[in-house]
Amino acid sequence: MKKWPETWKEYNTGGIVFEPGNARSFKTGPWRSLRPVWDNSKCIKCGVCYIFCPEGCVQEGPDGFFAADLDYCKGCGICAHECWPSAISMIEEGQES
């Protein structure tokens, strides 16, 4: 998808956006200064991190563990703060986990 229509002729009639959820094309990951890192050995697979993420970017993997899509994670720290057994820690962006 183009960021902006090239000309006014490409502006959808009435400014309607026909493609549901195409905001995914906008990556909010670069807003982040802290990054959540999961320690699956502590994880009890409760899904609390999933339910509380305002971005909806924490999803369950095939192994039942949860992980954030770092293209969108804004680094708010909610998941780490709410995780019951402290399986998630927030680390500086750029640092190794």
Partner: peptide
């Protein structure tokens, strides 16, 4: 969907 521009948290 992801990609909305709300503030962190």
């Amino acid at each position: 969907s992801c990609g909305h521009r709300a503030c962190q948290g």
